[in-house]
Design a protein around this nucleic acid. Structure first.
Lengths: 331, 331
DNA sequence: ATTGTGCCTGACAACGATGTCATGACTCAT
DNA sequence: ATGAGTCATGACATCGTTGTCAGGCACAAT
C-alpha cells in the first residue's frame, strides 16, 4: 500500500479510502490511486485490514463435514457457499472422518484463523469444548446432528418422522414382516431413524420385539452380509428399511444376488443418483441437503449480524419418493 | 496475548515464544504461561502472526472447483485436503459454475486472503490474468485442464488416450458403427476426448467422417434426446461412447426407454457409483480424481517449499473398467 | 575481583492496514 | 472582510503478533 501511495503521490490513508470505496476522496485523486494500484497489481490485504477494522471480521467461515467427498456433504457445502458468496464470505472446508479428535483440532485450526463463524457436523460425544467460544458470541450452527452439552443452533432432518413415514408406507402396502438395517448406534441420526421406524410399527400394533434389527453397519459389505443373513432365515422379512445410503447399496446387492429385487420391498433413507434407473427404481426417504445448507447459512448470517435470540433447532422435512421398490407387495 | 502476559507476569514476547514452541524459555515460566493461556482460553491469531513472520505464510490455500457438490471434484478436494492437512494447511474451496468471471473474482478473493497457493480448474478462455501472481512466485497448480496463456504446473487425466482406449475396446468387440456423444466443445477435456476417440477410429481404418458426433451436451436431458435421435436413424450405431457422466446417464435413459440396454454397447468416460449395479453394468473409462488431488498437492507443496524447476504437466492415466455394457457385440 | 559465557527475558520497532483527529483550502452567508 | 461550515487530505496511534537486540543474572574460568 505504501508503494501505491508513493506512486500516486498521496498518503496511505487516501489509498485505503479508495480501495475501500470510502467517501471523501476527490475524483481526480481516486483515479490517480486506482491507476497506481493497477500498475503495481496491488491488492488489499484482508487479514491486515481486519486486524484494525472495527468488528474485526475476516469474511471467512469454517465448515466441518463428515467428508468433503461425500455427496450429501457436497450438496450442503454448495448451498452454504452460494448463500455466503453474496456477502463475500469464503469457506474453509474440512473433513472429519468420524474422528472426534480431528473435530477438536479442526475447530481449533479455524479459531486460530479467526473465522467469523462455524458450521459443523458434530462427531465427538460432546461439543462442550466450544462453549467458551460460543459464549464469546462466535456464531455457530450445527448441522445434520444436534450437538451435545451445549445449547446452540442446529439444522437437522426430521429423521424419526422420515423413518416413520417409511414404516407406514410399507405397512400400507400390506407388509407385516419388516426388518431394519442401520448404521452404528453411536450416530445420533441412526438412533433417531431406528426409533421412528420401530415406534411406527408399534403404533400399528406390531410386536416390535419381533422386528429384526441389524445395526452397526457402516459400509456396503457389512450391510450386504446382514441382508443376506436376514433373507436366508426361516421367516425372512418381506420388506426392508435401510437407514443410510451405503446400507441401501448393500441391501440392493444382496437382493440382486438372490434374484429377490422384485420380490422383497425396500425403502432406503437418503436419495442417491440413478435410484430411478435401478430395476426396480428404489423408493427412498430423501433428505434435502441443499435446504439444510441454505438454512444453516441463514442462521449463521443472522448470528453474524447480531441476532441474540435463544438458540433453536430447525427441522428440515424429508420426503418420500416412490420409485417401485417400496411398493412391492408382500409375497 | 497481552492479557496472558499480564496474568503470567511475563512480557508478551515470552508468551509468543511459548505459544510457538520456541526455545529459550525456562520450564517454570513455560508452565506459568501455558496455565495463564488456558485459563483465558487464549489462542494465537495466525493472521496477525503471519503479518510479521518472515516468509509470511498463512497456511491456507485456495481451491477452485467446477462445483464442490460434484463428486469428481469432491474426491479431488478430499485427496488434496489429506495431503495438506499434514502440514497444517487449511483449504478455501469455491465453486466456479462454468463462469469465467467467477473464476477471476474468486482468484482475487483468495489473493486478498493471502493464500500460500492456488489449485484451480481453469474455466476462462485464458489464465493470463494470473501471470503477475505466478511471476511473483505464488505457487499455482492447474487441475483437470491445462491453462491457456500461462506456463504453469498442471495435473490432468490422459483424456485422449482414455477415449482412444474406449474406441479400440469397442472396435475389438466387432463394432464398426460407433457414435460419439460429447460435452460442450469449449471444454478442453471434451475436445481431447473427442480427438482421441475419432483418431483411434481413423487408425482402425474407419471413415471418420461417417461417425456421428453429437456435441454441446451438458446435461442428462439433452444427452438423452441426442441418443434417442441417433438410435432412431436409418442406420443406428451399434455402440456409443459418451464423454462424461451426465451424458452417460442420458444415454442410459434413452437405451432403457428403447429397451436397447442389452443390444447397444456403451462405454462412458468417468466412473460413477452403482455403475456395476446397472443392467447391464456400465463399462467406463475411469478417471482417478484422488490421484489427481494427491499429485496436485505434492506439486503445490514442492512449489511452496521453493521448487523453481520449469512448470510441467503431469498426466494421470485413466483406466478401462469392464462391466458388461461395453462388451455387447454388434447386433 | 574481574571477565567471559550462556541462558532467560522483555522493550521496541515493524508487518499492512484502518480509526481518529487535526489541518488547510474553499465556499458562502453575514 | 470575517466567521462558520464543508470537503479533501495525511500524520499518527493502533490492531496482535514476531524479529531484533540489549540487559540482567548465574556460574565458571582467569
Amino acid at each position: 500500500m505504501r508503494h501505491v501511495a508513493a506512486l500516486a503521490g498521496v498518503g496511505i490513508k487516501t489509498v485505503s479510502r479508495v480501495m475501500n470505496d470510502e467517501p471523501g476522496v476527490s475524483e481526480s485523486t481516486r483515479l490517480r490511486v486506482l491507476g497506481a494500484s493497477q500498475q503495481l497489481n496491488y491488492q488489499l490485504d484482508m487479514a491486515a485490514g481486519s486486524l484494525r477494522r472495527t468488528g474485526r471480521q475476516t469474511l471467512s467461515i469454517g465448515l466441518l463435514l463428515p467428508s468433503v467427498s461425500n455427496p450429501f456433504s457436497g450438496e450442503i457445502h454448495r448451498a452454504l457457499e452460494d448463500a455466503l458468496a453474496e456477502r463475500g464470505i469464503a469457506v474453509f472446508a474440512a473433513s472429519l472422518d468420524d474422528d472426534p479428535q480431528r473435530e477438536k483440532a479442526l475447530v481449533s485450526a479455524f479459531l486460530g484463523r479467526r473465522v467469523d463463524g462455524l458450521v459443523l457436523t458434530p462427531i465427538a460425544k460432546s461439543q462442550a469444548y466450544v462453549i467458551p467460544e460460543h459464549s464469546r458470541d462466535l456464531p455457530m450452527v450445527f448441522i445434520d446432528r444436534e450437538p451435545v452439552g451445549i445449547d446452540a443452533d442446529a439444522v437437522v432432518t426430521d429423521n424419526a418422522v422420515g423413518a416413520a413415514t417409511a414404516a407406514s408406507h410399507l405397512l400400507a402396502h400390506g407388509h407385516r414382516k419388516l426388518a431394519y438395517l442401520g448404521d452404528r448406534t453411536e450416530i445420533q441420526t441412526a438412533r433417531e431413524r431406528r426409533r421412528g421406524f420401530i415406534e411406527e410399527l408399534g403404533r400399528a400394533g406390531l410386536a416390535t420385539s419381533a422386528v429384526p434389527v441389524r445395526e452397526g453397519l457402516h459400509d456396503e459389505e457389512s450391510a450386504r452380509l446382514a441382508a443376506l443373513e436376514l433373507l436366508a432365515s426361516d421367516d425372512p422379512p418381506t420388506a426392508i428399511f435401510s437407514s443410510q445410503n451405503l446400507v441401501t447399496f448393500g441391501v440392493m446387492r444382496a437382493l440382486k444376488e438372490l434374484g429377490a429385487s422384485k420380490r422383497v420391498a425396500l425403502v432406503g433413507f437418503d436419495d442417491f443418483t440413478l435410484a430411478d434407473m435401478m430395476e426396480p427404481g428404489i423408493t427412498v426417504i430423501a433428505q434435502h441437503p441443499e435446504r439444510i445448507g441454505k438454512l444453516a447459512a441463514e442462521r449463521l448470517l443472522a448470528r453474524i449480524d447480531g441476532d441474540r435470540t435463544a438458540p433453536a433447532t430447525y427441522v428440515v422435512p424429508s420426503e418420500l419418493i416412490l420409485r417401485g421398490s417400496g411398493e412391492i407387495p408382500p409375497s
